[in-house]
Amino acid sequence: MEIFGVPLNALYAQLLLGLMNGSFYAILSLGLAVIFGMLNIINFTHGAQYMMGAFVAWVLLSRFGVNYWLALVLSPLIVAAVGIVIERTMLKRLYHLDHLYGLLLTFGLALVIEGLFRVQYGISGEAYPVPEALTGGTDLGFMFLPNYRGWVVVASLVVCFATWYIIERTKLGSYLRAGTENPKLLQAFGINVPLMITLTYGFGVALAAFAGVLAAPIFQVNPLMGSNLIIVVFAVVVIGGMGSILGSIVTGLGLGLVEALTRVYYPEASAVVIFVIMAVVLLLRPAGLFGRES
């Protein structure tokens, strides 16, 4: 069976790939949105932190023999710790300034981190093996599902919705939302807002690193893996708007699928389709699909 001249199997395979890329967009844009909500900073280092997540997992495996599942927990914690040091020593000094300085600082940090990894590991990239439990694939009847790709989609969705649940449905989340709305008032109620800001940054960074570990077995673990991705994620954030958690998730997944469909039907445009959609959204709905006009 074919749809517009494309065999159904190939179409499904591409859609799965799109869903997988979309999961990465979703986790990364979610992290950006969480950080932006609390710190009012666009974290340009996000791509570098995603790359660090993958590298830490690779180093853990190749040097210390730490397996994938443990790395999935350890690597985000390690990268988040580095992020917290950055927040405490540098970002903290910029909160009273124009938000653009935060962007510039994190941009500089991204260059430093990327450069350090490039000097240390070169640009050829390292291979990370797919964990044994997830090798091979499953025949679903209508298509062949590589297990690891399925796992990436499921794991990302679980993490995304857990984040949504924490922020929208728990007491801690309510503090977070209150801090986004009015940090001074929250501080007056006796909540340690600076600590919360630090932990929020750490959490956002951990999300990026988690995505990095998920990505390690699929893509080459490469110092430059984050920087190109992060620009696409910026476009995703502009399209979705950073006002809503669910909005980030839906936009991320949706754009991954759109990109996949473009790759099937008009491959030349697949690299730019998200940017084109961004331009159209800006014309029709400048605040973004889920954004609030401020």
Partner: peptide, 8 residues
């Protein structure tokens, strides 16, 4: 890039 980033 490292030096550029540091200057930044």
């Amino acid at each position: 890039t490292i030096v550029t980033g540091l200057i930044f």
